[in-house]
Write a protein that binds this DNA or RNA. Structure first.
Length: 409
DNA sequence: GTTGAGCGTT
């Protein structure tokens, strides 16, 4: 093999990143998506035809063209809405923006320093993506800041990333949450899907590599001991939903994707006339009292982002996961499942605005609340966000990183 | 000019 590394860039004008090939000369898609979250394939411009050629992708591996990798610059391909360049028809853009709007909600930024201005706030959050709105709340009489602001992002991914961490703004640690008000909170489709009929040789990496082609995978959970199913969490709930009901072949194994459903309060379920055999979710109650214990954030994505600090295990070896935390798909009971109904029910049941997110648990210090003293060390995935490069992320490492010993449910 | 959990003059 003539190359150990392959230059890959997000587009032809960007600076490439060299990515390591595997021993067999292939490139793992997960290697690519670790640097380019959401990337689902590669292409290169053929010197003669001047057109792009796609790179073969199979089972999470990118295979070199027949003539070898050559000296090309390889360009990432992204699924649908990741891409927002020219050439898209206006109608599509409108649809997409509308969809994003439905997903995004206003966010409240708490704990701003008195001196912070609207500019400060906007500029800070623009690191995470396009900011559609930033309002600093002031006392009408004095004009003094009330120490909080409302912001809104254009993309749901930005929103989730911002919600998932604390923010140092002008010298103070600030929290960003979904506001209590009625208007604010919007839809929260589950980002997690249940993958049935897994075999034991389907590793978390295999699953991640495979499902990354559909969108950014933020978590892979395989119960231990082996239980023939797993969970895949996507950053984009729509990607997750789009896969439900499908059969996929991964490493020759036919697996089935269906709705994952959170553990529900049984009384709630009864009240709401829902099938009551939801499964245990990696969810737990906590008496924890620090400042992270009552944040509002999409629970599914909390886990997705690896901050739940509760389920252990996941990708790659080493995760001495604590075993439980499996969930069953609603479909497993033999009852008919109407996905729309389930989604609606989950929303009704308060999913998407779960408070009481337990903290602690994550040994990595990731989101262990600062309860007392110094500000917390920024979580790992935070650091990539703060590189100001929203296109880069350790997505494929998340699973490995959060081998929490977790609280039990 | 002070303050530090909260929830948005329009």
């Amino acid at each position: 093999m003539s190359f150990e590394y392959l230059p890959v860039a997000e587009d032809e004008n960007e600076e490439p990143i060299e990515l390591p090939l595997e021993e067999d000369g292939t490139l793992m898609l997960s290697t690519v998506s670790a640097q380019f979250p959401g990337c689902c394939g590669l292409k290169y411009r053929h010197p003669e035809s001047k057109t792009f050629r796609g790179i073969r992708l199979r089972d999470g591996r990118l295979y070199p063209p027949p003539e070898g990798w050559g000296n090309h610059l390889f360009i990432c391909s992204f699924p649908k809405e990741h891409k927002r360049k020219s050439g898209e028809c206006t109608e599509n853009l409108l649809l997409k923006n509308k969809r994003n709007d439905n997903l995004c909600s206003d966010l409240i930024v708490l704990g701003l320093p008195w001196k912070a201005t609207e500019q400060t706030v906007r500029e800070y959050f623009e690191k995470f993506g396009e900011v559609l709105m930033a309002q600093l709340k002031r006392d009408p009489k004095t004009g003094m800041s009330k120490g909080f602001a409302f912001i809104r992002f254009a993309s749901y991914a930005s929103q989730m990333r911002v919600l998932a961490q604390r923010h140092m703004i002008d010298g103070r640690w600030c929290d960003v949450r979904i506001p209590n008000s009625k208007e604010g909170s919007v839809t929260s489709m589950p980002c997690k899907v249940f993958v049935g009929r897994c075999t034991e040789d389907l590793s978390a990496n295999d699953l991640r590599d495979y499902f990354s082609q559909f969108g950014e995978v933020t978590d892979v959970f395989i119960p231990k001991p082996f239980r023939a199913f797993s969970f895949i969490t996507f950053l984009d709930p729509e990607v997750a939903q789009s896969l439900c009901g499908q059969d996929h072949i991964i490493k020759g194994v036919s697996v089935n994707v269906s709705n994952a459903s959170p553990k529900q309060n049984k009384s709630n379920l009864a009240q709401r006339n829902l099938p009551s055999r939801s499964y245990e979710e990696h969810q737990h109650n906590s008496n924890n009292n620090n400042s992270w214990s009552s944040r509002s954030i999409d629970m599914v994505n909390m886990q997705a982002l690896g901050i739940s600090g509760q389920h252990g295990q996941t990708a790659v070896a080493g995760g001495a996961g604590q075993g439980q935390g499996g969930s069953m798909p609603l479909g497993m009971s033999g009852l008919p499942v109407n996905q729309a109904l389930v989604a609606a029910a989950l929303n009704q049941a308060g999913w998407g605005l779960i408070n009481n997110i337990p903290s602690g648990g994550s040994e990595q210090g990731a989101f262990a609340g600062p309860a007392s003293t110094a500000p917390p060390a920024p979580p790992n995935f935070l650091s990539w966000m703060q590189q100001g490069n929203s296109a880069q992320g350790p997505s494929s490492q998340w699973g490995q990183r959060h081998q929490s010993q977790g609280h039990s449910v």
